[in-house]
């Protein structure tokens, strides 16, 4: 190690100094606000934070609130469907491009295009398209199919699926781009070996190529998972959590209680629960990837 340090173009002390701004941001902005949020959740704060210990009062209230439980349930359903559909669709699109279809450049751009839009724009556009009195339903009705119904956004049982549809439309392109990059990195000889072995193309993808791309798939799932946890803008733009509580999600719940309902302590409690839940979900994965079998 002494020789390595001697070869570095700078002294290790200098590197530590250069990293200080980053450390300050991490400590103050990330960890600091996290600690502060947890602290506030233990107080009876309403409009403004009051530093007065109230124990687990906010948490007890939270889990008795039907709207919170619904929003958590919505997030789980939305997350499962959204991640699964985006992964399948994105992977199929990537495979289609990898099979060297015609006009690849154009198709790839079109498929990735939705991802360049803000969730707000996606939400508004899909809300218009699915609005029974404005969008697809009206156009089809006007063409003569009077009985055609496409009113998912206004149907409490289906509104969540409408949000999933819009989210998948937006994010499948991202999965496609990631998977395509992975597929392009596959050694061409591997495909030749698969052909010489007489393995059908679909079987080659399923049994040999996709398993190689597991790290890429994990990355895609993590990115989509982050989108699920922070899903707020799409819901606000499309349905504003409605009809009723049909598309409410935890992020929206927290924002409502923070800024609209002026209930800072309660919202902080909800935010803390989200933090703990995400940490609990990620911990086994971090353990498996970074800490085990070293």
């Amino acid at each position: 190690m002494a020789t390595l340090a001697g070869k570095l173009p700078f002294r290790p002390g200098g590197a530590a100094v250069a990293l200080w701004p980053a450390w300050i941001i991490v400590l103050c902005a990330y960890l600091g606000t996290m600690v502060w949020t947890v602290a506030v959740s233990l107080t009876p704060s309403k409009l403004v934070p009051v530093m007065q210990f109230a124990g687990t009062h906010q948490y007890e209230r939270l889990f008795k609130t039907a709207r919170w439980m619904t929003s958590v349930e919505n997030m789980l359903v939305f997350g499962a469907l959204f991640i699964a559909a985006s992964m399948v669709l994105g992977t199929l699109m990537a495979i289609a491009l990898d099979r060297k279809i015609a006009a690849e450049g154009v198709v790839r751009t079109i498929w990735l295009y939705p991802y360049s839009l803000s969730f707000i724009v996606t939400g508004v556009v899909w809300q218009w398209m699915m609005n029974p009195s404005l969008g697809i339903q009206k156009s089809v009705n006007a063409m003569g199919w009077e009985n055609f119904r496409f009113d998912w956004v206004t149907d409490p049982d289906r509104a969540l699926y409408a949000v999933v549809l819009a989210a998948v439309w937006q994010s499948a392109g991202l999965v496609m781009a990631l998977m395509l990059a992975g597929l392009r990195g596959i050694d061409e000889d591997l495909w030749k070996a698969i052909r010489v072995d007489g393995i059908p193309v679909w079987r080659g993808y399923v049994s040999i190529i996709l398993p190689v791309l597991r790290p890429v798939m994990v990355t895609a799932v993590v990115l989509l998972g982050i989108a699920v946890v922070k899903s707020y803008d799409l819901v606000v733009a499309m349905t504003n959590g409605g009809p009723g509580m049909a598309t409410d999600v935890p992020a929206k719940f927290i924002m409502d209680f923070l800024f609209v309902r002026a209930n800072v302590g309660f919202a902080s409690g909800a935010a803390t629960v989200m933090l703990v839940a995400v940490a609990a979900a990620i911990a086994p994965w971090i353990y498996a990837v970074y800490l085990r079998k070293r």
């Binding site: 591997l190 070996a193 010489v196």
Partner: peptide, 28 residues
């Protein structure tokens, strides 16, 4: 290729990375 009675050895060997040696040989 599979009907030609050939075996091919590639520059990178192109073994199936996620399969064991036995699976590599037996998968085809």
């Amino acid at each position: 290729p599979k009907d030609r009675g050939i075996g091919m050895v590639f520059q990178s060997y192109a073994l199936y990375p996620r399969m064991s040696v036995a699976q590599n040989m037996g998968f085809g």
